[in-house]
Design a protein around this nucleic acid. Sequence first.
DNA 1: TTGAAAGCGATACCAT
DNA 2: ATGGTATCGCTTTCAA
Lengths: 329, 329
Amino acid sequence: MAVTIKDVARVAGVSPATVCRALTTPELVRAPTRARVVQAAHDLGYSPNRAARGLITGRTGNLGLIVPDLANPFFPSVVKGIQARAREAGYTVFLADTDEDASVEAELVRALSKQVDGMVLCSPRMIEDELRSIAGDKPMVMLNRRVGRIPSVTVDNVGGMRQAVAHLTALGHRRIAYAGGPRSSWSNRERLRGLRAVAPSAGVQLVEIGNFTPQFASGLAAADLVLAADVSAVIAYNDVMALGLLNRLRARSVNAPTDISVIGIDDVALAAMIDPPLTTVALPKQQIGRCGVDLLLALMENPDRVGVARRELDTQLMVRGSTGPLCRT
Amino acid sequence: MAVTIKDVARVAGVSPATVCRALTTPELVRAPTRARVVQAAHDLGYSPNRAARGLITGRTGNLGLIVPDLANPFFPSVVKGIQARAREAGYTVFLADTDEDASVEAELVRALSKQVDGMVLCSPRMIEDELRSIAGDKPMVMLNRRVGRIPSVTVDNVGGMRQAVAHLTALGHRRIAYAGGPRSSWSNRERLRGLRAVAPSAGVQLVEIGNFTPQFASGLAAADLVLAADVSAVIAYNDVMALGLLNRLRARSVNAPTDISVIGIDDVALAAMIDPPLTTVALPKQQIGRCGVDLLLALMENPDRVGVARRELDTQLMVRGSTGPLCRT
DNA sequence: TTGAAAGCGATACCAT
DNA sequence: ATGGTATCGCTTTCAA
């Protein structure tokens, strides 16, 4: 059996109430008494039962975190940021992976919400209505998506696309393909919006290749469509798809950057490990996580200001080997 | 305020005790009563407070999970397996990332152990003594490491090395380098043990290049040592290092598989995405996780049999493009 | 079959 | 400054 507050009280020769105070509000206890309590607690290896505490304080000291797919290298980075920031703030985190399934997501939100002080939803798949109906319960922040007045941390997708297009046009490209992500993805819609807004004024023709699941195999499939589209450059919804593109293009003897330029989005670690390294729009992945936790903590202090809590982080094009000047043939 | 058992009791017109029974031990409640309770619970959207329940039952319904570094693509897969299996079994999981720091690890184990029914330690960095002293508390299982009588799930590292060496010797290689992982890594020691055991009888010379942190940059550094060692093939401690090797070797105009053969370990997703794809010893990553949870659940039922609980999973060489027949010059 | 009541471990209020 | 006590939400005897 674990050691409880009563054990400490007995050993220290005081009441449980005093033990509690000595440990949580030391200034309310006379120094010598406090010392005895602390000593006893230490000797017994006492540490308070958080569940019991939570029962009465209403705070659990836990945060919930829901991600769509840990196998996508983008998410572990975000999770790492969240976990690190939460630990600094004295919180532990519940992690759940939904396997990209929106119904699982809803179920998990409901289940977890009972045991946490707040939740971070990473790239949520749920439909807006559902999201709203659940959001009322516990404070929660969304990452990589904006819905109604739910607090969120997002990145400047439009700015990222602007940088990408500027880079390509500077290199001479005038016809650029976009291999899109899932139609339901907020990030994809934003990226597309950015591209559509930027392309005309940059004097480039945008060719939308279609919507794909954000996977390697999708990049493979997209590559053939890209080749048929007669473009000199392609922007992919994310790095993993860009890798698929690169792979299949090379299989068809079209090499980056000489024959075609390829840009990814995310800047996952492996983007810099391949040859040629992938030019990509970097997202501050860990910072997205840290920032999300910061927002959540602020919200938990002051639940009223929910509506205004919103952060947008910068993106940065990383120019690497997969893009190069247009070769006029 | 959340809906409690009392609310349900009131609406259903029964006592809280009956609500509890109807929901946890239905056979003890008359059907019509049970129906009313279930109906009320559903209408109110009731779900029991797990913390309160845990207080009395002594079981939290939570599992703790500690990993050294989510940024290493090996671990997210394991985590995914753990998380999936835990969810199936009705458990939620606490996740903590130690950033490869053994002292953080110890602290986290201690902190988490209070709030969970059991813990999974993934590739623990802690020294054995420390590990043992903490292990007494809650049931725990280790992944990728064996220490004393602590239950563990490991993989057949030796068998993996045997397959790798057999593959290379069949291709004609007779001098093989091993670019090792951290000296403190149990997996690294096992792999080295396997190589040393297998090499002589296979008629190959093993050249140990040194110990490295399991990162891309280490592979870069190791590559030059490999070239100086005059070998025709190299096995890396893991895939990420193998990628570094491939990268730097190519920079020095030594290309796999024509000029040298390279084998990694893990089979992370990106191993198959690069060109040439990486030949690697695949570990059943998700299964390691699932298996660890299974073991843990079994242990929680029957805490006595701790000593014997131990599983070793198979490894499988995936022959891909980064290895090829020896080119005699 | 159901209800009343006693805790689980910690906190917070009210006395002293 | 300290102790007694009610309470958080739920489970589990013990009676009825």
